[in-house]
Design a protein around this nucleic acid. Sequence first.
DNA 1: CTATGTGAAATACTTCACAGCG
DNA 2: CGCTGTGAAGTATTTCACATAG
Lengths: 181, 181
Amino acid sequence: MTRHRLVLLRQILAGLEAQGWHRVTSRDLARWAGTTPDTIRKDLSGSGPGAPGAAYEVQELKQRLNQLCPVPPARKTVLVGLGELGLALAENWAFLAGFDGRPNRLETVELPFPLFPTTEIVPVCLRMGIETAVLALGPLEAQKVAERLIQGGVKELINYSPAVLRVDRNRVAVSEFGGCE
Amino acid sequence: MTRHRLVLLRQILAGLEAQGWHRVTSRDLARWAGTTPDTIRKDLSGSGPGAPGAAYEVQELKQRLNQLCPVPPARKTVLVGLGELGLALAENWAFLAGFDGRPNRLETVELPFPLFPTTEIVPVCLRMGIETAVLALGPLEAQKVAERLIQGGVKELINYSPAVLRVDRNRVAVSEFGGCE
DNA sequence: CTATGTGAAATACTTCACAGCG
DNA sequence: CGCTGTGAAGTATTTCACATAG
């Protein structure tokens, strides 16, 4: 019942529903989730009507999963690093603020949310009640910035930097992208 | 002994060594890896001299981990999607080729590797022996492109698209970034 | 007193086997 | 037949307890 697999299933289900699927078998789900049908069925066991014989009905299954692993409420998030990568990400995310260490970037760049120098991370995050941050900068800055974000109360880091962060993963959730290694 | 944790440890160790650390305790490693000291010690048990009483020596530990989970050989990788995001990624990765569905992009963009239309994915990947692909495009295209890449023999997908891929995870490794959900 | 190493107990997860429904 | 649901058996992983070295 590893949590990770449940959220993956929920996302897959959402995709299926969006594309108009009506039925799925545990075998299909198993392939997409990278396990066996048995495991899928066990994950779902004891959490819904589901009749044997027929495959799962997509909508009904999605409901089950939403109960089983509640969809996380949208968190207040900020972007750190306004280079090429940061700007590209800014187009698909709804950030509440942005940070960068280079003063000229703060004046040059035009974005639909307020920008601050990285030295202001702690007070700004605390004041705005920020919960998650997206990191898009070089490896050395990333580590320093991550520590400040945590000091500022951030509980989730999404790391686009080419370095793995050394932070207390028992306290904050980290999505590493690892990248080039 | 979950594999995932071992590679995380190895990466953390590499970072420590790069920054001149000499010693680490299992408790520090546990914090950074998001587990308990017991688990860390079990992971490392039976794989090296390591004396009780003193903490681990960073260099020696790194050697142990390199034996325990061999560092993966650099794979031949391509980039699919030459939008803002793709171009930003192209600066930090060593791609062997790039793909995009829009013909004008292929002529407009200037990159240090050959570019092809997405219709050419299968033959180009097969010919070049491509093993991994980075996806940086919209959700609908991502799914189609992923299927073609797999048909082209790709064994690892690194997904920067805001959609989770529906592919056989028993056959290909997928790093989802999930993103905005 | 704090640190690692390690067998034993406890727990979590997966696989197997089979009952029962389309 | 193929599919789900589920208890039982089997594995894997984590936690506990303690021996032992700095």
